[in-house]
């Protein structure tokens, strides 16, 4: 399997579409246990990132990921901006100078992204954050030779749904304590959309790592 710049671009475009579609939904989720801006933040940032990369030519995946990361850092704001931004920046280091990524490079990049998230946010699994999706998904990627689209989407969806029963320990929802139980974590949902759009790209044959 090989994942190239064109395929990665299509993924970001697809991710942006999904975020725009779910802008109101993500905002509603954040209204329930946060401050009601997650959809707005993600939609603003992803749109900028999609525009940015559509207008640019990239020789390697690293510079594409770096542009996405920088744009997210500069445009999203809030907690999710530095988090997603750092994730892409960390991944870009792994993908530097690579025209294509094979399975190992691909998993290493996403694994670096997860490390970035943890470094930046200091959240642990179970804190009811996007980490509750990222951590098991990356672990699963690492332990599976073939990354099957349907498995990826099912797993990330399941982990996203599991955040509903958690009590938040990090992020704005933590102020609610037990009252955060019973609500999905908005960042877990946007992370699910990230992996779901990745899975869709695979299915559409846009890439198949």
């Amino acid at each position: 399997m090989l994942w190239n710049v064109e395929q990665a671009k299509k993924w970001i475009k697809r991710l942006n579409d999904k975020i725009q579609e779910n802008k109101a939904y993500l905002t509603e989720l954040d209204q329930a246990i946060g401050d009601g801006d997650h959809g707005l933040n993600m939609a603003r940032g992803l749109q900028e990132a999609a525009n940015k990369i559509a207008d640019s030519h990239y020789d390697d995946l690293g510079s594409l990921f770096k542009d996405v990361g920088m744009t997210l850092i500069a445009k999203v704001g809030g907690a999710s901006g530095p988090l997603y931004g750092t994730a892409f920046m960390k991944a870009s280091l792994v993908l530097k100078d690579r025209k294509e990524a094979d399975r190992n490079a691909f998993v290493a990049a996403f694994s670096a992204a997860l490390d970035g998230l943890k470094m930046r946010g200091k959240a642990q699994v179970g804190d009811k954050t996007m980490i509750d999706v990222w951590d098991p998904v990356i672990a699963w990627m690492k332990s599976h030779e073939t990354i099957r689209a349907n498995e990826l989407v099912d797993l990330s969806k399941e982990k996203m749904e599991d955040t509903k029963e958690l009590e938040a320990k990090k992020g704005r929802a933590a102020y609610l304590g037990k009252r955060s139980v019973g609500h999905l974590d908005p960042g877990a949902v946007s992370s699910y959309l990230l992996f779901a759009s990745l899975a869709e790209s695979f299915e559409k044959g846009e890439s198949a790592p």
Binding site: D35, D37, L40, N41, R44, A74, K75, V76, G77, G78
Partner: peptide, 9 residues
């Protein structure tokens, strides 16, 4: 920042 959203670095 944007309304209720931390400004960016």
């Amino acid at each position: 920042g944007e309304v209720f959203t931390s400004p960016t670095p």
